[in-house]
Design a protein around this nucleic acid. Sequence first.
RNA 1: GCGCCCGUAGCUCAGCGGAAGAGCGGCGGCCUUCUAAGCCGUUGGUCGGGGGUUCGAAUCCCUCCGGGCGCACCA
Length: 504
Amino acid sequence: MAAPVVERLEARVSELAGAPAQLERPKDSSHGDFATSVALRTAKAAGRAPRALAAELVERLLALDEVESADVAGPGFVNVRLADPFFVAALGEMGEGYGGSWAAQPERVQVEMVSANPTGPIVVSAGRNGAFGDCVARLLSFGGHTVEREYYYNDAGAQIDRFRASVEALRRGEPVPEDGYRGDYVAQLATEEGDPVPRMLASIEQTMERFRIHFDGWSLQSELERRLGEFLPRLDTYERDGALWARSSAYGDEQDWVLVRSPDKGGAPTYRAADVVYLVDKLERGFDRAIYVLGADHHATARWYAAIARMLGYDADRVEVLLYQFVHLTSAGESAKASKRAGNVVFLDELMDEIGVDAARWYLVNRGPDQTIDIDLDLASEKSAKNPVYYVQYAHARIAAILRNAGASPELVLSQHKLVGEEKELIKRLSDFPVTVREAADRRGPQLIPAYAIRLADEFHRFYHECRVLGDPAEEFRLALCRATQRVIARCLDLVGVEAPDRM
RNA sequence: GCGCCCGUAGCUCAGCGGAAGAGCGGCGGCCUUCUAAGCCGUUGGUCGGGGGUUCGAAUCCCUCCGGGCGCACCA
């Protein structure tokens, strides 16, 4: 999980400690390059004082070639400082594909995301859905899984009917119905011919491509509903009040849900009926794992999906629901209630117009999915200029400038010079990458990537300031360090869907 | 009432059992040298309150307070 050279060292330390030891990066680098709390963890079982155990470990560690110094700190931490060859070896392992392909058993994964009704353009909240889902997809893909992105859209049902009715009303020169959709885009569609739904969908796809999300597949609710007949017999259902219910409460859900409405409610299947068909469709299409990316208001549906998976005899662990909190829009501190129907929303395209695609993607994935996002529209453009994404991109561009000026040179990293602090710190930060990216993927927490990228850029800018690359006796070593840094920065940026510019 | 999420620096937020952090803001420095969208210094916190578990808790458990969102034969 860690960089291989760190893993090897970890194994040696574990051996010497007589127990599994984890090497941690102290927050304060004056404590050392790495630290381990293994003495604290094992002291009780060993019936020894933690500091005494730690002192013994220090003695043994000092015998290792790669250890420059080691000492006991605090209640029993062991701080270790490593010799130059360790850093040189670490850098040597940071080639193409560094940090990726960790999956021992690669899976076929489907990430279904955005899936907004095609009743209007994609709003910022749906953009967050996409930014989150797409980053998870990129992380899994980097780990070695095969990932497909899919958009599920409701092309039938009450909302769509209202949407069509709104457009048609305008075409007839009548006002939009009370419960209809307003907004400039509705008026625009009214001036065009034909069904507004496919047009809306095409425009959504365009927005998503601009946002750098490419969908491999599009599923229609109406098509799935048509296959409902083959699945109903496989479900545990019953009739009540004229409607057909799924007995989901018997499979872990909190309640039962209507699959087919009663005749006096129109007798049509609910979206939950389509859910069932879609879930089976996903699993039968050969995906080992089906990931749903849903807004926090859908938190209850996680249980529903798990329940129908069990009801149909599938392993519920193959179904995963990722939730994210909403994006609240404020204007000069006043909160603006967002409603697509009312037309007072901010579209993702508008946000991209305002702050650019890079800043928009970074902004929407920068914070954990459990955190609500408030966007103050009046501050959006001002904030964009200070977006940390540029700080990271700038590091990439600076490296590109050095490499442009350097001309051809081998990937050789051997160095005879005495490493300076900035070089070591940068290499240590690079050695964190495999752990970080893996954790981001496992936890479905893409926000870890921007946070890491900022720290990495930080180390690079410091290195750049202190260490001359071109013309220095250590030029080749430093060029190798630059190349490794550039690769990792570019990878981080790619993982969050942001471009890595060579010039700024 | 029940369920999910959140409460960490002036602001926006990372941190998910090991030694309290970043960005922005404030104050003060650094451009004849590979990009100053940069670097350095400084300012700044009872991690919402209270209990508990642990050698160790912002982190896990309980509880209270405050906020967001759900609890449809809408999607």
